[in-house]
Simulated assay, not measured.
Amino acid sequence: AGDAFALFTRDLWRYCARSAIAYKTMVEGYCYVGDMDPATRILAQMEKMGFHIDVGLHNAILRGLIRAKRVDDALDHFAKMEKNRDTDLESYSIVVSALCDEKRVDKAVDLLYSMNEESFLPDVGIYNRIIEAMSELQLHGAYLLFEQMIEAGVLPNSATFSFLVRGCFKRGFLDEGSELLRQMVESGCVPELATFNAVIEGLCKVRRVENARWVMNEMASQGCSPDAATHRFLLEALCKMDKLDEAHRHVQRMIATGCLPDTVTYSFLIKKLCKEGRPMEAHRIFKEMIGIGREPDSSIYNLLLASHCAASKATACYELFTQMKERGVLP
């Protein structure tokens, strides 16, 4: 692709007048393929010849440098743009996103504040990008930025709330996360599946199963269907609380509603039943698992074999071992 573009630019240079359009086309092309040395040389030549460099071309340079993993060079170029007042909202968005990708969040926040000095109003997309990064690194800072965003008159959207809610539940700040979820729903923003799953996972980790069930019902009222992961969080919590019969009933409800448990879910339940000395119940669930088309791996067979051996169930062991060979599962 690079060779083809080099031929194109050579011909463009040969047959077209050395106009601003010709220069701009070459610069944008080199930026697109990430070949930044010729792009910056041509840009410098344009400046030397007195051609006007518009903000769109500067933004192409920023994107090209970032694409080439030359973020510091992009920052230097952006600083020149700011000095010459050649920036727009997209310029800031490009640089903020690159800084957040590199986890240089403090620098991204500094840039956000400098936008106000340049009379640019950051939009929800720029706030969201920083809040997303901060929620992984500095959750308190992300929440403060959320409050500042509202004070500045920028309304949060579903993504804003989702980043904060997921950050809270991931770090165990359940009450704060629940309050944000309430605000999210009241403001008319619909949580996505990943947000609901983060809430349910956080609640299940501290065994607040009833709260998790309430959130699952809330999902349905918002038109969001739980997936296998949603159910798995609840099932793992029930198993850890030794509520194995309740866990199995939940599996059956999943099947009835068309959300088939995955192999990981069944493995967790079978393992717990085997540890509790209930091999026959584990075996029934194992058969149920095969019945819905889930393929057990060697770890599940090994669990059942060990459990049946401990209970002196020689016939069950032989049947399982034979089935392993028939299914091509190596012991």
Rank of each mutant, 00 (worst) to 15 (best):
K83S: 13
N84R: 15
N84T: 10
R85F: 09
T87S: 03
D88F: 02
S91D: 05
I94W: 01
V95I: 15
V96E: 00
S97M: 08
L99M: 06
L99E: 00
L99R: 00
L99C: 01
E102G: 03
R104K: 14
R104G: 06
V105R: 03
D106R: 07
K107Y: 08
V109Y: 02
V109Q: 01
D110T: 10
L111R: 06
S114H: 12
N116V: 11
E117I: 09
S119R: 14
F120C: 10
F120V: 08
D123A: 05
V124N: 06
I126Y: 00
Y127V: 05
Y127P: 06
N128V: 00
R129T: 15
R129W: 00
I130D: 00
E132F: 04
L137I: 14
L137Q: 13
L137N: 13
L139M: 13
H140T: 14
A142P: 04
Y143H: 11
F146E: 05
F146H: 11
E147G: 04
Q148I: 07
Q148D: 15
Q148N: 14
M149K: 03
I150D: 08
I150K: 15
E151I: 03
E151Q: 12
A152C: 10
V154S: 08
P156Y: 01
P156A: 03
P156R: 01
N157E: 12
N157Y: 09
S158Y: 07
A159G: 09
A159H: 13
T160G: 05
T160R: 03
F161L: 07
S162M: 04
F163Y: 15
